[in-house]
Design a protein around this nucleic acid. Structure first.
Length: 957
RNA sequence: GCAGGGGUACCCGAGCUGGUCAAAGGGGCCGGACUUAAGCUCCGGUGCGUAGAGCUUCGUGGGUUCAAAUCCCACCCCCUGCACCA
């Protein structure tokens, strides 16, 4: 059937909106659920990645409402950023108008999908109503000593005309445009995130993030424990004594130090070599390292390169004098930019020492009491100290050795235990227009002065023009913006023209959502503590934010906590990173390259081979994107949502497939048919009614478990697939009762709501039959705690299905073995003595009877064992029931609860089969079906011997 | 190199707190029913084998166990992130 998806969907969207059903308010009496998706950068229409992200979130928000939770589910726009500036340049407009337009476009798309946001809370970060709080927070951070203006070497992107944070440089390239970054020395604003390094790292153990995200953050923070050791330079440097500080994680190898290596940029290099024969070689090396492109660097890294600086440093423990080198493999920005070299136990040092003929001193042994030996590859594990030139160290192992060396250093005042981080302070300032102005100003007499709170917001001027001709930051050219008065001396002052990194905006937006219309504070304390208690309950977004956004947001939450603004420490209780959306793209196996879809069916532009196809991430450059709008027009939002959720679990990657979308659309149509049919039934009670309702309860419980675990694929399978096939089975088995159907459908409709809310709501209102009915969107589901006899009702039917299934298999075999046409089936169920034995076994099993030890004796004590002619068979049956064979366990262990119940309640298998004989005859395509227990009729085909409880003997005739 | 995640039938994908697992579900394919005919809908089949046996199968090779897709060890391969980080 075809249904008018657009009509149904837009009608319900309007009704939800008019009834304000998704508005959420603080309510201490109710359990809250804060469901959040990473808010989008509004770049135009919504794309499929967004659809996936929001469909997952909306399903969970709707599910939790059905569970009776107070659900906060907001949406907003991360609307500062470069693309709007570029668009403004292209169009000759202002980023503000570009942004407003894009927000309207994406919002319309989101509304058409039926997402259940509380739209009252919507905001865009590029509005003064939002960014004034960015500025206020900045001032408060400044007061708390978290803001620093430093003159420092920073990463600069020429294309984007701005500096970048460490986190925004990937492989030495700009994260946004891919251009190689260059180093520049500039005065920049930093947020002191390193203050929170330990907490950011340690708390990772206690939050529900995917392992890979945690690993990436740990890696990024990069804490390592070790020692800071001072190596005094022999002789004076520029007339003064000097010392090289080095960080090492292996103080236990201090006796193996045979040289010291500085990074070529190290500030001591120049004074050490200045005016010596070594100066030129050092200059060459330093210059080479400075101008190395990424490509060259990777190649160069394969070979260690260094130059002697002609001077020596003293090992503070041993007093030995070792030569000082500059080496290309020492990173200036990590630790102190200097390393103590232990070629005996560090591969890089070893390679370097071999190349330049330096001494190699093994000072650790692999075995207790062993010797230190030179090896390649070197032994870099923990070992026992040997060859120490001072008493008291040899024989110490691992951490004890490290501790001993550190104490010795501390005693001599030559070093101390130390912890280093890879994490750097957050470089916050950007030389861009479309961002939050940093609320600072520069006064000739007072210096750098914060803008007073009451003067906030510092607004971006709207009278600025954008063009490709003028590069740089338009703010720096806007006199109206620049000119101001110093609040301290009332003299003339210039505003800071740097704006904030847009990641600042998204570092606290989840807290703004709890109270987004507040115009006297970023957010209310009570609201944030209610909604953010335990963090956002479910946060969904892409893995690409694993380090940057998620780390900044965690930092902000802790920093604002310490400002007394909330009592939350971790912003996100549970994080789900949705997988990639893939679609086929032309692919050349030889070149291992994907091409634009225009190349489908053609040859590889590179090598000329015929192109195959491969699933690749949807991207504009490949052209393999799918337009959500088009899909919604064709199939409706419900189908698109169902496809997205059924296609793969949230974390898994998923492939777009037109066929699968069509298949899901059919599924939606079948469900609609089922409801229409179900509503039209008349009173006709039957034996299948209790079965159907039992199935409803089973499916509901399974569905709830899956949804709670955010296993949406499994959840949807229960709600949109299992429920339908059970309905079909009910009809096939002759079920046709109006009352039962209504109960089933009323239980089913809410289950449909998370994935396909519009049809679910439509059914729900149809089922109300004129009664005043709540909307499904605000309905709270009731769950049955499982009626007592569900298990046996279900077991009875699955027994029948099992018999039919095995009979069907046997029919195939029988056809090959029988000359005559098959016309009937005779089913012999287990003889009463076997049933009796099973019942006894099941009852014993319920009491944890030890069959291994006492089973045989127990059998012998049973009256039935008196029957000598059956004794052998009785014994075999008993063993099959209780012990099983090598490969198969006894039946009492394999039967499900319901099956055991059937057995112990003394079921009459023949009765079950005979009562369904017409049905069985139809599905087995035979004319007659006869069932009787073994012995109560002729043993047709000698099949009596197969008969076992729940496994009858089947003979085709 | 380090870290994290994986390798299940024609494909996707569940299972992986050991037995009820020849292994859910979907897609594809094959067959049947319905139909003038279907690209529609429904039903069934889809490792080999067989009037119910048995055999082989969950990356490869070992091991533990009465019993392994599941637990342990080694190896191979794939994806993701970081990377001369001292």
């Amino acid at each position: 059937m075809v249904y008018d998806s657009a009509e149904i969907e837009t009608r319900w969207q309007a009704r939800w909106r008019d009834a304000r059903v998704f508005d959420a308010e603080v309510d201490d009496s109710r359990e809250k659920f804060y469901c959040l998706e990473m808010f989008p950068y509004p770049s135009g229409y919504m794309h499929m990645g967004h659809v996936r992200n929001y469909s997952i979130g909306d399903a969970m928000a709707r599910f939790q409402r059905l569970m009776g939770k107070n659900v906060l589910y907001p949406m907003g726009y991360d609307s500062f950023g470069m693309p709007a500036e570029n668009a403004a340049k292209k169009e000759g407009g202002h980023p503000h108008s570009v942004t407003e337009r894009n927000i309207e476009m994406i919002r319309a798309d989101q509304e058409r999908m039926g997402y259940s946001y509380d739209w009252r809370r919507m905001f865009a970060t590029s509005t003064p109503e939002y960014y004034r709080w960015n500025q206020e927070l900045f001032l408060r951070f400044n007061e708390a000593g978290l803001v620093e203006r430093r003159f420092a070497p920073v990463n600069w992107c020429d294309d984007c005309d701005t500096v970048l944070a460490n986190e925004q440089v990937k492989n030495n390239r700009c994260w946004r445009c891919g251009l190689e970054v260059v180093q520049k020395d500039m005065a920049q604003w930093f947020l002191r995130m390193t203050k929170y390094a330990d907490e950011l790292l340690d708390e990772l153990d206690h939050i529900e993030f995917p392992e890979n995200v945690k690993a990436m953050q740990r890696n990024w923070i990069g804490r390592s424990h070790g020692a800071h050791i001072e190596f005094p330079v022999v002789g004076n440097v520029e007339g003064e004594s000097a010392s090289i500080g080095a960080f090492t994680t292996r103080p236990d190898t201090i006796f193996g130090v045979t040289f010291v290596t500085l990074s070529p940029e190290h500030p001591l290099c120049e004074p050490l070599v200045s005016g010596t024969e070594y100066e030129q070689a050092w200059r060459d090396l330093a210059e080479e390292c400075a101008r190395m492109t990424e490509f060259e660097r990777i190649n160069m890294l394969k070979q260690k390169k260094g130059v002697p600086l002609g001077r020596f440093a003293t090992n503070p423990i041993t007093g030995e004098e070792v030569p000082i080198f500059a080496g290309n493999f020492v990173v200036a920005s990590y630790g102190t930019g200097a390393v103590m070299a232990v070629p005996g136990h560090d591969q890089r040092d070893y390679d370097f020492a071999k190349k330049y003929g330096l001494e190699i001193k093994p000072v650790l042994s692999r075995n207790e009491g062993g010797e230190g030996v030179e090896e390649n590859p070197v032994f870099d594990g923990l070992g026992w100290m040997v060859n120490s030139t001072i008493e008291g160290f040899d024989g110490l192992f691992g951490n004890d050795a490290k501790t001993a060396v550190i104490s010795a250093l501390e005693e001599k005042g030559a070093g101390h235990g130390s912890t280093e981080y890879r994490l750097k302070d957050w470089l916050l300032s950007r030389q861009r227009f479309w961002g939050t102005p940093i609320p600072m100003l520069h006064c000739d007499s007072c210096g750098v002065v914060p803008v007073p709170y009451e003067q906030l917001p510092v607004e971006l001027p709207l009278d600025v023009t954008f063009s490709w001709e003028e590069s740089g930051n338009p703010l720096a050219r806007s006199e109206s913006f620049l000119t101001t008065t110093c609040p301290q001396c009332n003299g003339p002052a210039r505003r800071e023209t740097d704006t904030m990194d847009t990641f600042y905006d998204s570092s606290w937006y989840f807290m703004r959502f709890v109270d987004s219309s507040n115009d006297s504070a970023p957010f209310d304390r009570e609201a944030v503590d209610y909604w953010m208690n335990g963090g956002v309950d479910l946060y969904i977004g892409g893995i690409e934010h694993a380090v940057m956004h998620l780390l900044y947001a965690r930092f902000f939450t802790k920093a604002t906590r310490d400002l007394g603004m909330n009592e939350v420490s971790e912003p996100f209780g549970r994080l789900v990173c949705q997988g990639m959306l893939n679609a086929p793209a032309p692919f050349c196996v030889d070149c291992n390259t994907e091409y634009h879809i225009d190349n489908f069916g053609g040859d590889c532009p590179n090598c000329g081979q015929g192109l195959g196809s491969r699933s690749a991430k949807m991207s504009k450059s490949l052209g393999n994107t799918v337009s959500p709008g088009e899909m919604v027009d064709r199939f409706g939002a419900d189908t698109v949502r169902l496809f997205i959720l059924f296609g793969a679990n949230p974390e898994a990657g998923m492939d777009w497939s037109d066929n699968a979308v069509i298949a899901n659309h059919k599924q939606v149509c079948s469900i609609i048919d089922a409801f229409n049919h179900g509503i039209s039934l008349s009173d006709s009670p039957g034996p299948m009614d209790s079965w159907l309702l039992a199935r409803l309860r089973v499916n509901q419980n399974r569905w709830r478990e899956c949804m709670e675990a955010v296993s949406l694929r499994e959840g949807v399978m229960a709600s949109h697939f299992e429920m339908l096939s059970d309905w079909h089975w009910y009809l096939r088995r002759g079920g046709a009762n109006r009352d039962t159907a209504r109960q089933y459908l009323r239980g089913w409709a809410p289950m449909l709501a998370p994935a396909t809310p519009h049809i679910a709501e439509e059914f729900w209102s149809e089922l109300s039959m004129g009664e005043a009915s709540d909307m499904l969107a605000t309905h709270e589901m009731k769950f049955y705690s499982g009626e007592e006899n569900d298990a046996s009702i279900l077991a009875r039917e699955s027994y029948l299905r099992g018999v039919i299934e095995s009979a069907r298999n046997l029919r195939g075999l029988a056809e090959r073995h029988s000359d005559a046409e098959i016309s009937g089936v005779v089913i012999q169920t287990a003889p009463s003595w076997k049933v009796e034995l099973s019942r006894e076994a099941v009852n014993l099993a319920n009491e944890d009877f030890d069959f291994k030890a006492k089973g045989q004796d127990h059998l012998k004590s049973m009256p039935i064992f008196e029957n000598e002619s059956l004794r052998g068979e009785i014994f075999q049956t008993w063993m099959a029931l209780t012990m099983g064979s090598k490969k198969k366990r006894g039946r009492i262990h394999t039967w499900a609860e319901g099956e055991k119940e059937l057995v112990s309640s003394g079921l009459d298998e023949s009765e079950i089969i005979n009562s369904a004989s017409d049905f069985i005859a139809t599905v087995l395509e035979v004319k007659s079906v006869v069932a009787y227990p073994v012995g109560e009729g002729e043993d047709i085909g000698g099949k009596a011997r197969f008969a076992f409880p729940l496994e009858p003997g089947v003979a085709f005739v």
